[in-house]
Amino acid sequence: MLTRTRAPAQAPSQVQTGLGSVCLRDVGKTFAARRRGAAPVTALDGLSLDAGPGEIVAVVGPSGCGKTTLLELVCGLTEPDAGSLQAAPATLMAQRDLLLPWRSAVDNAALALRVAGIERAAARTRAAALLRDFGLEGFERARPYEMSGGMRQRVAFARTLLSGRTVLCLDEPFASLDALTRQDMQDWLAGTLATQPRTVVLVTHDVEEAIVLADRVLVLAPRPGRVVATLDVDVERPRRRTDARLVALRERALRELRA
């Protein structure tokens, strides 16, 4: 059985008109063998995931558990072989910032608006306003190579928000940053999502990042990727990393991962 429903792509000009949701039921995805004679690779098997409007769902798991495949499914970059999938228009933010090196910060942030056919001046105005909110005032015209990793990641996040997609898929967004910057960026992301709510599917290796940010954490096991535990994080925001409940949840998630 395979059904797929996808809400009609919403023009990025109508940003923030309601929040989308994501619903995966028993989704499977198998890739054909790369070499002749090798067995096909089952990336995901019977995976279910729900992210209601405005919810932040984190997915943690070791390498090879199909996390990236999961996000590509949600973004419509690939189709499932089995199960059903419903997703509002989603966009992807990766570990690498993927900023265009020849474009300034503001033009990178405005990328999706330009793709949607919005005029350069209008797109720049909106992107510049968001960059200011993100503490990047004065760096609007800087090129990516002139900015630090944390700044570039904020530009990438501005670009993601301005795409007008109601679902954000974050693929290890802070994995390439140093530990201190990573914590700052996690706190910053939590604050940004508090003021500009989005439905988020966050994929990460970092259990603490998942617990600090998410409403619910799915623990995946590899080969084939499947959910082995679901942890609800019923802790009010803003959260402190040292909160006993968060620490306990982190221990539990780590135990599940090692099981």
Partner: peptide, 26 residues
């Protein structure tokens, strides 16, 4: 050209031509 950049453009709803003009040509 980074395949992830092409994927990013697709999630923005970019056409093949837009991806070429905005990402690949430069």
């Amino acid at each position: 050209v980074d395949p992830d950049l092409r994927k990013l453009m697709r999630t923005f709803g970019a056409s093949r031509w837009q991806t070429f003009r905005i990402v690949e040509a430069p």
